[in-house]
Design a protein around this nucleic acid. Structure first.
Length: 255
DNA sequence: ATGGTGGGTTCCCCA
């Protein structure tokens, strides 16, 4: 079973690219982040015609997450416990087969020390609490999405330039480790120890053209899920070409 | 120290 995660930076703007990618890669599950539309604006039929079930948690203009799956999507939940109607739409979870899937779009945080950064820290703590309470790590648990945090300097093209900057600060990395504490492993790193593998490149600095990226899109897996995983691949090719997202898709290949 | 580009909305926000 191929599970993919992709921050598409607007599903409507990216629709031709997403459809092309699905047709060539045929993932069984595709978790989308930053769909940037309401549920009723989501191009559901396009994906249904490609053979997918669709579960969305949309928001106008910002954020929004969705799960596409060839198999039944069961026990869908949207958001974190206790959230009000106006909360950011950043979380959708479900069971697909025997896999417990959680698709996340972590808060960006703007700048270390900003209000948005404080909100990011708070939000990540809530995710950590939720994950610990909700999941039995003896199950096949797969968290994926745009985590907006690098694990270490291997995930950063210029570690000195990014030292203690947003996406790379020690505090953010500790918050990410807290989410993992329940028993979740960085699946990409399990298979590949080298640095220089990135999932996001800034539009503004022409980062992709310069080879300047960060690895911020991740799969966090329980031991049972990791044991079933044959490999993880970043599809860097999808970051090139016409009207790309600023993120590349990441694909986990499970038994 | 700042800005760059791209997506979506509305005279600007977010990444």
């Amino acid at each position: 079973m191929k599970i993919a995660t992709w921050n598409v930076n607007s599903v409507r703007a990216r629709l031709p690219r997403v459809v092309d990618w699905i047709e060539s890669r045929q993932p069984d599950v595709l978790c989308l982040q930053e769909i940037k539309c309401l549920d009723e604006q989501f191009p559901r039929e396009v994906f249904e015609d490609l053979g997918y079930r669709v579960a969305t948690f949309g928001q106008k203009t910002y954020n929004g997450v969705a799960i596409l799956s060839k198999q039944n999507i069961e026990d869908v939940f949207r958001g974190l416990p206790g959230e009000t109607q106006d909360a950011h739409k950043r979380v959708i979870g479900a069971q697909i087969g025997d896999t417990l899937l959680l698709n996340l779009y972590v808060v960006n945080g703007e700048r270390v020390g900003s209000d948005k950064y404080a909100f990011k820290m708070q939000w990540m703590q809530r995710v950590a609490d939720f994950v610990r309470e909700r999941y039995d790590m003896k199950e096949k648990v797969v968290l994926c999405g745009d985590f907006n945090v690098t694990f270490d300097d291997r995930d950063v093209y210029d570690p000195e330039a990014w030292r203690e900057k947003i996406l790379c600060s020690t505090e953010e990395r500790k918050a990410l480790a807290k989410i993992q504490e329940a028993g979740l492993t960085d699946a990409f790193r399990h298979f590949n120890q080298e640095g220089g593998h990135y999932t996001w490149w800034d539009f503004r600095t022409r980062g992709f053209e310069r080879g300047q990226g960060l690895r911020i899109d991740h799969f966090l897996m329980s031991q049972a899920a990791l044991a079933a995983t044959k490999g993880i691949e970043i599809d860097k090719r999808a970051r090139g070409g016409e009207k790309p997202s600023d993120h590349a898709p990441v694909v986990a290949d499970l038994e």
